[in-house]
Simulated assay, not measured.
Amino acid sequence: NLADGYIEKPFSLPVLKARIDALLQKQDIFEYKNVCVNFKSYTAKIDGKMIDINAKELEILKYLLDNAGIALSRAQILDHVWKESEDVPYDRVIDVYIKELRKKLGLDCITTIRNVGYKLEIS
């Protein structure tokens, strides 16, 4: 929400820093409908109940969230989520992870962009 970032003038640098820190901190928790994901503890809950989810699924979700509203290609997601030390899978593996995210967490906010990849849209 852009309004969350509004600060009236004049403001001090400590106030600005506190505001920026608060906005950055928000990205550690993702709440959508009855879903709550904590990216620091790598946990996900639906209606307060823990869901079995793997780290890669959450890293993909975090990357989509950090780029909300932007269509990301499978290659971009692979490049960001898989480290250089890991064997990079075939790009269609992203489809499997997205399918699992949608199934496990009921995330209808992840949309498929035909011939491109995926986008997270939160209205």
Results as ranks from 00 to 15, higher is better:
14 P>G: 07
24 L>H: 14
45 K>E: 15
64 L>S: 05
122 I>V: 08
53 I>C: 13
26 K>N: 14
23 L>P: 14
71 A>D: 13
88 V>L: 12
7 I>V: 13
20 I>V: 15
79 D>Q: 10
89 P>H: 03
83 K>L: 12
79 D>T: 12
116 V>I: 10
80 H>P: 09
109 C>W: 13
107 L>W: 10
92 R>D: 11
60 I>H: 07
59 E>N: 08
32 Y>L: 09
36 C>K: 08
111 T>I: 12
1 N>K: 07
42 Y>L: 04
21 D>N: 06
109 C>G: 10
42 Y>N: 11
36 C>E: 04
3 A>I: 03
86 E>K: 02
58 L>W: 08
31 E>F: 04
7 I>R: 07
83 K>N: 12
1 N>Q: 08
123 S>F: 10
117 G>E: 06
32 Y>K: 10
90 Y>N: 09
20 I>T: 08
27 Q>T: 12
50 M>R: 15
75 A>H: 13
80 H>E: 13
10 P>F: 13
35 V>S: 05
50 M>W: 15
118 Y>C: 00
19 R>L: 07
102 R>S: 03
5 G>H: 08
42 Y>A: 04
119 K>C: 14
26 K>R: 14
41 S>K: 09
76 Q>S: 13
41 S>Y: 02
101 L>K: 02
73 S>D: 09
21 D>C: 08
1 N>P: 05
44 A>C: 12
15 V>F: 12
47 D>I: 00
119 K>Y: 02
42 Y>T: 01
1 N>C: 05
115 N>K: 11
25 Q>K: 15
105 L>V: 04
26 K>M: 06
